[in-house]
């Protein structure tokens, strides 16, 4: 069985802070990490590898430094790593990104493509289903658990707002995985050592063989018109008083505002 896992390098957004006086982002010193949902997806693939001796390829599109998360994937147990990188691919929105990745994936062998549900920098949850559409694959999103019958059928537990669904789908297919589906394994010492000897395959624009109008900024139907921080709201009244008095202040404020 061949599994391809799509992963993304993202800034650790939980570490980003806003300067309270200027309202601007403080991004200095914020580390880059493997997107958490993608890591959950990689773990799902590695579980299948443990059980069915599957071959796992990790693929990412990004800047050259995205190699770091591919090394991490190799150290966790992936067999092969592909870095899709080219200046021509820059400025891509989700559709252009999915066009690019689908063009690469269509040249590879796979039974299942696994992506994370969404990346913490954009939170769009779009690239997985868009790849599935380009490759004419059935998709299952919000995967919580995956079982394989060893031949061709996957049984999936999909998380929904009000419960879950049990879904069957045959290979080839694409699934998007929640970080909470798995506790990702740590890199092994041997894995780390070996990961640095393994070659990472680089795919540039020419190797992908895709029309330039479908990638990068040119291939993106959506454009950022402007970006801004939320700004700083004027703080309301503040009191530092004992509990009894505080309760009184709250009660009178609620009455004043007709809330009670």
């Amino acid at each position: 069985m061949n599994i391809i896992v799509c992963i993304k390098q993202v800034p650790n957004t939980t570490e980003i802070k806003i300067n309270p006086t200027t309202g601007t982002l403080i991004r200095d010193g914020v580390a880059s990490i493997m997107n958490p949902d993608d890591k959950g997806g990689l773990e799902e693939a590695l579980k299948l590898k443990d059980k069915y001796n599957a071959h796992v390829t990790a693929i990412t599109m990004g800047l050259p430094q995205a190699e770091d998360i591919l090394r991490e994937a190799l150290a966790m147990g992936a067999d092969k790593a592909i870095l899709v990188t080219d200046r021509k691919l820059g400025g891509a929105d989700t559709l252009a990104t999915s066009n690019t990745l689908a063009a690469v994936l269509s040249q590879l062998k796979f039974d299942i493509i696994i992506t994370g549900r969404q990346a913490i920098d954009g939170d769009t949850a779009q690239v997985g289903p868009q790849i599935a559409e380009h490759l004419d694959l059935p998709q299952v999103t919000y995967l919580e658990n995956l079982e394989y019958d060893g031949e061709k059928t996957f049984t999936i537990k999909k998380s929904t707002e009000d419960g879950y669904q049990i879904i069957e789908v045959d290979a080839p297919c694409l699934v998007t995985v929640l970080a909470s589906a798995n506790k990702a394994r740590y890199m092994s010492v041997r894995g780390i050592v070996e990961a640095y000897d393994k070659e990472i395959e680089i795919w540039g624009f020419d190797k992908i063989g895709i029309d330039e109008s479908k990638v990068g900024l040119k291939g993106s139907p959506t454009r950022v018109h402007k970006a801004f921080t939320r700004g700083v709201k004027a703080a309301g009244e503040m009191f530092e008083v004992d509990a009894e008095e505080a309760a009184g202040i709250i009660m009178s404020k609620l009455k004043e505002k007709y809330i009670i």
Binding site: P11, T13, T14, I16, K17, I18, L25, I120, D121, G122, D123, P221, T222, R223, V224, H225, K226, A227, F228, T229, R230
Partner: peptide
């Protein structure tokens, strides 16, 4: 919102 809500972006889809 983008970057975990740290930044807001206004997006256009002009030609499609």
């Amino acid at each position: 919102p983008a970057f975990g809500g740290n930044l807001m972006a206004t997006i256009l889809c002009s030609a499609h």
